[in-house]
Amino acid sequence: MNKNTFKVKVGLAEMLRGGVIMDVTNVEQAKIAEEAGAVSVMALERIPADIRADGGVSRMSNPQMIKDIQAAVSIPVMAKCRIGHFAEAQVLEALEIDFIDESEVLTPADEHAHVYKHPFKAPFVCGARNLGEALRRIDEGAALIRTKGEAGSGNIVEAVRHMKMITSELSNLKEQNLSEKAKEFRVSLELVEEVAENGKLPVPNFAAGGIATPADTSLMMQLGAESVFVGSGIFKSDDPKERAYAIVEAVTHFDNAKEILNASYKLKDAMKGLEISEIPEDQLLQKRGD
């Protein structure tokens, strides 16, 4: 019997396909998310939009709050650690968290290195803006990749940019000099060869960062995302319960515009979004970690 192999870690990521992972900050929101059909919840003290507004250092959430959420729902529970903060990751693993998000939404703890994820029992998800970044995280042991997008912005433009970038780099990879690419990406040649051969990442690829509506969801799924993370988009809207369910429906029926239309009818106002150019350069979350 093999526990905690890379295959077992990726296995859970595969089961989350075609689903919505929702940010929740308390037991009540976690229950709303599960009731609406979320495949998983991300337990965190403040959603990205509030982290952005509040400023200061943002750390791993209070373990008691995460534990309360674990007790309240039966779906997998994820939580975030700071980039490079392997001790926070160890604490989350001790808590038996189902997935650790080494996230740019929190203040990075290490400006040079991410957590080396292979020795952990718990699987990790990491953000990426391009193929090199995605492969570096996979080389370090990430079992799931998501676009970084621009968390807490309510603006889909960055997630679109990152998804299209990864997709186009994947489709061109085969024609490139792979050993040069491995050097450029700073990953093993074996990994680059495997990805070039298959034309896809060896782990699922989800969308995150700026998704606020059923149509945003459909857009990201049509661009190749296999699931979506929705952070601020649900509990910063005027109708979290209805919006959560509408986004779940939108993932399943992403290629059916009538279904997206039906899912959109009943909704009130989405969260207020941010124009990316109005976010000061040093406050862009996607620039954290490379």
């Binding site: 019997m1 093999n2 526990k3 905690n4 192999t5 295959k7 077992v8 870690k9 296995g11 859970l12 674990q70 039966s74 997998p76 693993e93 038996e96 968290i97 189902d98 997935f99 029992k121 718990a122 699987p123």
Partner: peptide
């Protein structure tokens, strides 16, 4: 019975 082996850290291949 759902999730009867426990959370993801208890998942396995055999």
């Amino acid at each position: 019975e759902r999730n009867a082996y426990g959370r993801q850290v208890h998942s396995f291949d055999t």
